[in-house]
Design a protein around this nucleic acid. Structure first.
Lengths: 207, 207
DNA sequence: CAGAATATCACACTGACTGCAAAATTACCG
DNA sequence: CGGTAATTTTGCAGTCAGTGTGATATTCTG
């Protein structure tokens, strides 16, 4: 009655955050592989076994917010209005995320991921999930099969742009740079699709 | 003197092949995760500890030929003649591989990968390496920075095509289908790059 | 406050992977 | 051929991630 969430839920949330904070700190200090579950548990003042009540694996701590982000993107794609392109939806979503959720810890996180092969693989798998949902949405836009080559190419190029964005993120100019990048992507994709639409001149110049 | 390779080398090669064969058999039967190193060692008639003298991890058995394939692609890209596009090089390379190395076990392998998350992540990492070298080669072609967005997009789209090819592979028509796919990719990339080159009309139609 | 629900935890276990040093095998050279 | 050096195989002990189970503690509900 005093709180929107019961004591239990609040404590759980708090413990979860403590685990994430302590773990990321240790990862930054010693590296991911050199940090054990026991280390994290001690720092967060929980039993080692309890860690696994919060995260299925050590890696999942690093990507603790991915599920929420992905779900957000997915529903956004699914619930877009008729006539609104998947790419436009993605562009909007990215600009929002950049402006709203400017997380200064992201830079540190990505340094960690880049330095840890297993995390890098995990990150790629995450991007793969973005790619999947984007591909099927693009396929709907283009009115082709869900696994059509052109849908894959469009989605892959868009996700490549997404990846390039996360490398700059905070230090470079925020929304302006993002918009510039997305514009370049749009021109590229549009040009590519137009070329596929007109079966005229195929390949003449060098790429 | 009787052999190009000494007894030692020959036995090593043989043992390596035995491990791969036995392991893949077991993986196909029971699944990757349900197969232990001890199982593989017993089947290949070696000590469990010896397994790690041949492969750094269980996963690497599945991708035992990746290093060679990747090195082939990489040198091919590096040593291409002046004026020959990275994309053209890739196209040639793929057609050769499809025709020469038609491995009937590949289908089985990819089923295994698709069914095993950790292998899927590993496979993505492998594709990521293709993407990296292709990106820098494309950047040279386009005369832009190695991490330029357009180089990334081109490479990402090409790798997406590569991934789509590996899904069909044996059952569908071989070289013909491959060439058709690569042609479509070329038109798409060419169109996209042309659009970026002419700063005229940007976005009008829907993608 | 009692009892149901749930969270924390200790314990024991599997399985991947590593370091180390002994034992077996192969190569080399006089 | 014999013996020694180089290399490979192996056993053993150990670390660490992750899981199942059941006991204990905490919170919730009436």
């Amino acid at each position: 009655m005093t709180h929107p969430l019961g004591l239990r839920e609040r404590k759980k949330q708090q413990t979860r955050e403590t685990i994430v904070r302590c773990a990321m700190e240790l990862f930054a200090e010693r590296g991911f592989d050199a940090t054990t579950i026991a280390d994290i548990a001690e720092a967060a003042d929980i039993a080692p076994r309890t860690f696994f009540a919060y995260f299925p694996s050590k890696e999942d701590v690093v990507f603790h917010d991915f599920d929420a982000i992905f779900a957000d993107f997915d529903t956004r794609l699914r619930e877009r209005a008729h006539g609104v392109t998947a790419f436009e939806t993605m562009r909007e979503w990215i600009v929002e995320r950049i402006t709203d959720h400017a997380d200064p810890l992201n830079e540190q996180r990505h340094a960690l991921i880049a330095a840890t092969p297993s995390l890098d693989a995990h990150e790629r798998a995450n991007m793969g999930r973005f790619n999947e949902v984007l591909t099927s949405a693009v396929a709907v836009d283009l009115d082709v099969a869900p696994d059509a080559l052109r849908a894959r190419m469009v989605s892959a190029a868009a996700v490549a742009a997404l990846e390039s964005l996360r490398e700059i993120k905070d230090d470079e100019a925020g929304p302006d740079h993002v918009i510039a990048v997305m514009d370049e992507v749009l021109v590229f994709l549009q040009g590519g699709l137009d070329a596929l639409r007109t079966p005229s001149e195929a390949g003449a110049a060098s790429d």
